[in-house]
Design a protein around this nucleic acid. Structure first.
Length: 890
RNA sequence: GCGACCAUAGCUCAGGUGGGAGAGCGCUACCUUGACAUGGUAGAGGUCAGAGGUUCGAUCCCUCUUGGUCGCACCA
């Protein structure tokens, strides 16, 4: 078989991705297996995507990171479990199905009734809900699909009920009339966290309120004149001289002509507006508090859909916008509108529906999070749970240090129904919470009972996910799923936007239940934006589709790009050109293997004898060792950028550009012993390389592994991750090699500056006073020939006179001369040499200045002084070399 | 308004505890080199936003200024 047919010239990722995913999945390689008793189990949770979700770059990034960690730990021998899941996403899903039914059947959810409607959602979920999960296979996710958990499954439902009932019985969950955020589109309460403030252009309206039994009028500024129908007071600051005499009197609300008290309240700021405030406790958070302090009446002027109700007779039935317009007109008619000035201000919008949030007073269920938040703050302060990068603590604390009651009830049909029951018997009216599906009142045994119709906030069940995915609270299921092994999990990987919604809630709820944080670390990754840093959105048309990228460049290229872009940064500006670049890298790896593959036939799988290693082999093994250390350490602290760059640099520069090039001569020689030895080392290195790369680029590495592995070896996915090897440290060979590389590069540089053709062989003279280095160079003469096209060379010490009519370059240790047979533009070269000189001079001056400063010698640590002295010596030598050479040209 | 974060090469970014400025992409010159043109070789390019301070020494620590991002609060 030819090389070409077995290993194509260009790696084609799409040919192998499906094959290997299937092999891993069907071979049960994603299941947790204890391979090394000394390693702790390692578990991770997939942030459950919405049932309605579509795969986007955010998922691709999140899953790339999760999968890197999973594969890395699995290869290290930890019993590794990545748990996948999915969120029922109450509001989003209900809205989607509602829309679908309306389009297809022209019916509303009320036409169907609750039971039928919920059944429709389940039907929809079964049909479309798995779509995104199938897409995750394309990303290479190595999660254990047997653990897949949907937040509405029986298990999570049990967890939700158990937690609710416990908190209810503890008094932490309670029902209360309170001012809450009302979404008029969804017709449901939403939590504070779900409100986004957006800047809106509105007006400042100045109104007149008549003081009763007086000629005096009060000027009041407002942005919402329509709420005057709900006014139950006018407030001034208690210390405001201007209005002191009016406190206790009555004001008359325009249009509805209701008398309301003029009260004093410290909330009113004398400096702001007119110093007078209309108080609408039913529709403003601050006014609600004022109302409570002053025992004011609450008037609700809104219907559930946001239209005005009978309490605002003059504008009844209108929506808020219309009502505002009409109110202003009426005020004009009665000449109580003084002025209208444009004003921009922040208005709360529902994150879910986008509509303006209306504060209304309503009976809702709340969870008192005060104590739980305090504990979850402590957990982070004690480093029981650590944020990476650490800065995100601030965001977490800013929420958790000001806990407010969490409004957990939603007036929806899709979700976990609140497990509270009411007895309808007038003589009983018992209310209780229960995990069971109750059929009769435990007190009066009446069957006339009802369950609370509301459902719970989606985040209530997501918050319990770390526990419910492992079977909590069902003892048998917990045993079965290995709760004790896998809880708490190792790390949570997610975006900053849900630090409060999800991270904080999991922390609170899990700490409450288990007295432990649900994960040890939280890694907050970046947000993927387009190449100009603009958020991807359908309307802007700048969305990159992961599946498209995979099709064009392969999954490995996408994963590597995302990983190398992912450190402690906030944004990833994803440029398709970058993905292409790393696709090229994948291809480079492929071709490097393609080159060495034919030579590996007789390679001894047991490797090599350390005593017989060639100095180049020692060098590459030393470098490989350093990379292994660096990559491992970087992944442990979630610096995927460092890990990727480290491997990239090693594979591309060290391995391909130098080691393979240096190996060509040996591989094509007749020396069978050296050839075998080199093949052994190449094979060893490449095995290590694909192992190092596998967590990041699983497909291409598994494919290559298929050609590399011995018959008794398993798939790459469960091979042991490389570890730093004490016996493979060769510092000296590494130092020599660095100098060799420096000299070869200098020769190439010289050739380039005077346009010597790549094929032309040249003569080179090296001058160095370092004897052992001279010996090393002598030993390497064949390699100079191959890599720098040197046909003949001499190595002398610096006491020997330098050749005339030559071009030269100097390093700190070696002078490189190339004699020339005329025809060269010397002026050009002299200019370059002068440039070299000025650079060398600058280098020298910098360190020389330090050494001439007695305070530096006095104060700086000895090792620093020594280092600078050595540098000075090298720079001096280099400078002298260039200066002497220049003199020869003058 | 309160708070946090950021400013390093043309672009995107990396630079634990102060001690000779880095990467990828892009750019320039040359090269049909038997692994790879998705390639090779060699380069150019930076007052580390500005001003002050601490220090023998500051991209790094402190203060201020300017410019930017984000979070929270604010519907008088």
């Amino acid at each position: 078989m030819t090389l070409e047919s077995q290993l194509p010239k260009t790696f084609n990722p799409n040919d192998v991705e499906e094959k290997w995913y299937k092999a891993w999945d069907e071979g049960k390689y994603f299941k947790p297996v204890q391979r090394n008793k000394n390693k702790k189990p390692y578990s991770l949770l997939m942030p459950p995507p919405n049932v309605t979700g579509r795969l986007h770059m955010g998922h691709a990034l999140n899953h790339t990171i999760l999968d890197i960690l999973t594969r890395f730990k699995r290869m290290q021998g930890h019993e590794t479990l990545w748990i996948p899941g999915q969120d029922h996403a109450g509001i989003a899903t209900q809205a989607k199905v509602e829309q679908k039914i309306f389009q297809e059947q022209g019916k509303t959810k009320h036409d169907l009734g609750r039971e039928k409607f919920v059944a429709e959602i389940w039907k929809w979920k079964e049909e479309y809900g798995n779509h995104i999960m199938e897409q995750f296979h394309k990303l290479g996710d190595s999660c254990d699909w047997d653990y897949f958990t949907f937040t509405m499954d029986e298990g999570p439902n049990l967890a939700v009920k158990k937690f609710f009932v416990d908190m209810y019985n503890e008094g932490l969950i309670y029902q209360s009339d309170y001012i809450i955020n009302w979404d008029t589109t969804l017709q449901s309460a939403i939590s504070d966290a779900e409100v986004e403030h957006k800047e809106v252009n509105g007006n400042f309206y100045h109104l007149h309120y008549q003081v009763k039994d007086s000629n005096q009028v009060l000027e009041i500024a407002t942005t919402r004149p329509e709420t005057l129908f709900g006014d139950t007071a006018v407030a001034v600051n208690p210390n405001d001289d201007r209005f002191e005499h009016l406190i206790g009197k009555k004001a008359i609300v325009p249009i509805c002509n209701r008398e309301v008290p003029i009260i004093a309240d410290k909330h009113v700021d004398m400096e702001v507006g007119t110093g007078c405030l209309k108080v609408t406790p039913g529709h403003d958070f601050n006014d609600y508090e004022i109302g409570k302090r002053n025992e004011l009446e609450i008037i609700n002027i809104l219907n559930k859909d946001g239209s005005l109700n009978e309490n605002a007779k003059a504008v009844e039935g209108l929506n808020i916008k219309e009502a505002r317009k009409k109110t202003v007109e009426l005020l004009k008619e009665t000449q109580q509108l003084i002025s209208t000035k444009p004003h921009t201000h922040q208005v709360g919008h529902s994150q879910r529906s986008g509509s303006v949030v209306e504060p209304i007073v309503s009976k809702q269920w709340f969870l008192n999070t005060e104590k739980m938040a305090e504990i979850s703050v402590q957990a982070v302060e004690n480093e029981d749970m650590k944020f990476f990068p650490k800065g995100w603590e601030n965001t977490y604390f800013s929420y958790q240090k000001n806990p407010r009651p969490w409004c957990i009830s939603r007036q929806l049909w899709w979700g976990h129904q609140i497990p509270v029951f009411y007895c309808s018997e007038d003589s009983c009216l018992h209310t209780w919470a229960s995990e069971e599906a109750e059929t009769q009142c435990p007190k009066c045994h009446s069957k006339n009972i009802q369950q609370d119709p509301d459902v719970l906030d989606t985040w209530f069940s997501s918050g319990l996910f770390p526990l419910s995915t492992l079977g909590w609270p069902n003892k048998e299921k917990m045993q079965e799923s290995g709760f004790d092994k896998f809880y708490p999990s190792a790390v949570l990987v997610t975006g900053f936007d849900i630090i409060f919604f999800w991270v904080a809630r999991m922390m609170m709820m899990s700490n409450k239940i288990t007295n432990q944080s649900p994960f040890q670390d939280t890694y907050i990754h970046a947000i993927v934006r387009d190449k100009d840093g603009v958020k991807m959105s359908k309307s802007l048309g700048n969305v990159l589709d992961p599946l498209e990228i995979i099709k064009e460049n392969g999954c490995d290229a996408m994963r590597f790009t995302l990983a190398v872009s992912s450190g402690y940064n906030r944004n990833i500006n994803l440029d398709p050109a970058k993905i292409e670049g790393y696709r090229n890298f994948i291809n480079k790896v492929w071709n490097a293997f393609r080159f060495i593959h034919p030579y590996l036939e007789n390679a001894n799988d047991k490797g090599f004898e350390i005593s017989e290693l060639h100095h180049h082999e020692k060098w590459i093994l030393n470098e490989l060792n350093l990379v292994i250390k660096d990559v491992t350490e970087s992944i442990e602290i979630y610096r995927f950028d460092d890990a990727c760059n480290s491997i990239y640099q090693f594979v591309y520069e060290k391995f391909c550009s130098w080691f393979i090039e240096l190996s060509k001569g040996i591989l094509n020689s007749e020396n069978e012993h050296l050839k075998i030895q080199r093949a052994n080392v190449l094979k060893y290195c490449f095995k290590q390389i694909v192992k190092l790369l596998h967590p990041i680029t699983p497909f291409v590495t598994e494919e290559i592994w298929g050609f590399l592995k011995s018959e008794d070896e398993e798939l790459l996915i469960i091979q042991e991750y490389p570890v730093f090897d004490e016996t493979l440290q060769f510092k000296e060979d590494s130092d020599y090699m660095d100098k060799f590389i420096e000299v070869v590069t200098s020769i190439r540089n010289l050739r380039n500056t005077v346009m010597i053709k790549p094929k032309d062989e040249i003569e080179v003279r090296l001058f160095t006073d370092n004897e052992s280095l001279a010996k090393y160079f002598y030993k390497s003469r064949g390699f100079f020939k191959e890599l720098a096209k040197v046909k003949a060379g001499k190595i002398k010490d610096k006491s020997i006179e330098r050749p005339q009519k030559s071009i030269m370059r100097a390093t700190g240790h070696t002078e490189i001369f190339i004699p020339l047979e005329g025809i060269i533009d010397l002026k050009l070269f002299v200019k370059k040499l002068e440039n070299d000189k000025s650079k060398a001079q600058k280098e020298f001056d910098k360190v020389d200045k330090k050494l001439k400063n007695p305070k530096f010698i006095e104060n700086a640590p000895i090792d620093v002084v020594e280092k600078v002295k050595e540098e000075a010596k090298e720079f001096q030598e280099k400078l002298d070399s260039i200066t002497n050479s220049l003199n020869n040209f003058q």
